[in-house]
Nucleic acid binder design. Structure first.
Lengths: 243, 243
DNA sequence: TTGCGTGATTTGTCTGACAAAGGTAGGCTC
DNA sequence: GAGCCTACCTTTGTCAGACAAATCACGCAA
């Protein structure tokens, strides 16, 4: 349960809208009425509405009211599913892991830059092949500073576990990630790992994750089979009301 | 200038943070102090801070204060650059257009579903090849309902213009878009249009744009040369504070 | 029918206050 | 002296009430 009351109200309204209890395009009750119904003050309700508006659930117009917007249903939203496990589960398949291996090494130049490390700083690397309903669909490689997590801690995590869950358990939750998307064809090594032919299309997601203080925590390279996944992103429009 | 005072305050603070006037990790003045400094009430300031928090510019902690977060600088953020023109310009190149053509047709099934139209509803189609510094980099195809815009209006727009700008000029600004990303290889027709070899890697962006009322306005298919572009997305972390 | 004015409705902003949680400094115990 | 605990202060979260501004609906007149 969220710490802030306004978050709970926000989630409650978001659920109602998503579930269709408040129909798309329908007008919500006025703020005073809705505040009484939800048992909170109008200020708290407005915090929640502000958040919903920011995420595109509702539009608010002075003099007119607050209206729910039509919201497209998304299967694999990059915003919602942060890890590979989430993405697979969101597609209705059972996630699994294969060929898991952890090791330590000196950081390469690219890794040093991405993670903000000193030269020759030690890093720990986790390489896995993720499966959906038993079929290999993603090859992933996670790199973390040895200062962030020890080899033992990384090796000790659940085989199907999420690195994010481990980091959060250590009090270093991931607050934000920046992912770069590019297409590529499978080379021979990747084809063997994923058990597909050479030349099959992949989406390469290179992601740097940052902690709540803004420090880089994790560098991930994920190679997704294009035919197995579909990525969607919600983009905010150029309407001048926004920044 | 935005209609709502809280939006202006939001933008003002976002600018300060982005420009480094408020350093990453630095603590902002307390709400009462900041409200006086900005000349607004604390309620309005809190609306602005709520928005900034939602976008990851700041974190707020009761008892501790509001802190600016480190925000990575992005070259081609799918969130920031909505149209192809923006994306090309953000890469430091000069956008241009080639092989522009408009026509009208009956909507296909996929187009009907995406745009929420009745069977055999007429649509207008704009096909263009976009260039960066004279080199063809994107093949695009925009489909709109004939009710939204007439063939003449579409043909009359500036050759390098943005469909978004036209829609906004007609009082139908695009508030949100949902893009699906998938990789593909160029077929023969696309290779000729983009003047590349068959088999070169493309990123296919299929996007549906919605108006402020949530109604679908525009269906776009964009085929980007992979080697010419790089797409980044900021993802919100799995920190438990979110939905 | 069309246009205009007027009033009701609704969100936006302001003011003031108290509660809750984090941070800090001081004192106490061992 | 080191560590722990407590009281206090700061800061955000929530509440209450009021007025301003914008939109919408209705009635009326041309």
């Amino acid at each position: 349960m969220s710490k802030r009351l306004s978050f709970r109200i926000r989630d409650e309204l978001a659920t109602r809208i998503a579930a269709g209890s408040i129909a798309p395009g329908a007008k919500l009750p006025s703020e005073p009425v809705l505040a009484i119904e939800l048992g909170v003050s109008r200020a708290t309700l407005r915090e929640a509405l502000r958040s919903l508006e920011e995420d595109g659930f509702v539009t608010r117009t002075r003099g007119s009211g607050t209206h729910a917007t039509y919201r497209p249903r998304l299967r694999n939203n990059l915003d919602m599913n942060f890890g590979v496990t989430d993405a697979i589960a969101a597609s209705g398949m059972t996630p699994g892991t294969r060929d898991s291996a952890v090791r330590s090494a000196a950081a390469t130049t690219a890794e040093r830059e991405a993670l903000g490390l000193a030269q020759d700083a030690p890093v720990v690397i986790l390489e896995r092949v993720r499966t959906a309903d038993g079929r290999a669909v993603v090859s992933s490689r996670d790199v973390l500073s040895a200062d962030t997590i020890s080899l033992g801690e990384l090796a000790g995590m659940s085989i199907d576990g999420s690195v994010y869950a481990v980091l959060e358990g250590m009090g270093r939750p991931v607050a934000r990630g920046v992912v770069t998307i590019s297409p590529m064809k499978t080379d021979r090594a990747m084809a063997r790992r994923l058990d597909v032919k050479v030349g099959v299309l992949l989406l390469h997601l290179r992601q740097v994750d940052y902690g709540s203080d803004g420090a880089p925590l994790l560098l991930s390279d994920e190679f997704h089979l294009a035919e197995a996944f579909e990525f969607t992103v919600v983009r905010r429009g150029p309407g001048k009301e926004r920044t």
